[in-house]
Design a protein around this nucleic acid. Sequence first.
DNA 1: GTCTATACTTCGATAGAC
DNA 2: GTCTATCGAAGTATAGAC
Lengths: 232, 232
Amino acid sequence: MSPTPPAAAPPPAATAAPGGPTRERILAAATHEFAERGYDGARIDAIGRAAGVNKALLYYYFPNKGELYRGLVLEQIAAIGRQLAAADEDELPAPETLTRMIEAIVDLGAERPAVPLLVLREVLNGWGHLRDEDFPGLFATARPIADTVARGVAAGAFRPVPPLYAHLMIMGAMNFFLVSAPARARGSRLVGQPDMDPDPRAFARFVSDLVTRGLAVDPAASTRIPHPGATA
Amino acid sequence: MSPTPPAAAPPPAATAAPGGPTRERILAAATHEFAERGYDGARIDAIGRAAGVNKALLYYYFPNKGELYRGLVLEQIAAIGRQLAAADEDELPAPETLTRMIEAIVDLGAERPAVPLLVLREVLNGWGHLRDEDFPGLFATARPIADTVARGVAAGAFRPVPPLYAHLMIMGAMNFFLVSAPARARGSRLVGQPDMDPDPRAFARFVSDLVTRGLAVDPAASTRIPHPGATA
DNA sequence: GTCTATACTTCGATAGAC
DNA sequence: GTCTATCGAAGTATAGAC
């Protein structure tokens, strides 16, 4: 507020558009573009334009399209790992933890819509844009759900199912739900069914109910977990 | 076998490669290429080469890349509708029908590996390559599972859940499983975990168990459905 | 750090002979 | 119906000035 020159502020380049340092703006624009159009559909030019710079500057910060893509995919996927791990902080019983993880997935989808898109696109691609050394990191992301299911099985709360199956089912269902919103929107608009775009939290509740009930050893033992904010 | 000239045989063009009439070969090659690489990643040239023809001939049969793609996507998606409808032929109770539909999905995935890939890619794209008039056909595909769940709810066999949710969950889980096989294969190869590539039928069994148990009104009422060929 | 201008390549699509 | 040859647009990447 005072005329005092800011001491440690970054170089206030006259051209610098709002939204942070150039590199970050490029990264954000690229994340959006790649998520929306896929690797092959994304255009370097469009990324530059969205970031308020031109191609040449983009190549000043990143070696090429592939490395730009790879870097941001790894970053976004790491976010899933953090989110999932955070859902297990309290070390609650397996069913509650699973419920939290499923909620964490839709929350992340709301915060970072690019994540499920990038994940699904890259899975379709067989992780074709990642290097071998990236895989240990990927696996860290796959573990939380599987580990939680395994814990539930060990504790006698869940039937003895392969934890990987549960992981695939949950990730598949949640990611599909998250990425299909635009497709469903167009569909319902064209057929006039307003029902087609459920609230993500409602869908998360449906899935966690289904999973905890479906995994319970004795179905009767599946104690209803009160959802925060549930009125009934 | 005899020197008698074949009467109604199609013109035995000397260049005709094995595998059926040219148009069909192009369609098959295109289906594979588009499924594998996506619309933007697919190359007209590669399709031609795989079909044993050249670009020019491809454009003799199809007006352009977009229409070639659109036509084959609609055809493959229609196959899901047929497969799902066939699973309801016997009009069994809802849980059994659902189980059959889930099996039908993995069976179709084995017969036509392109189907789940094309569906998922197109959903990610918001059906961006289809026209408005294609949507009634799309919806026919979405109905069987939802209708079956609705029937189960009406019959008192299932809890009152939104049928759409169940449809999304099942399609998401199954498609994700089917398309992630290569990704999982690479992952497990790099980490040395052999567990990662479960048999599709086993996964289908897991999902249908989970769904029928999870949907049952009174958990105890969820009668175990004997799977054909199950030993125990 | 940021821009303009451009080199090089690939790709979808067409012309025209056979 | 099928091919060879090629056009023109678009795309990634770079050179070089400021």
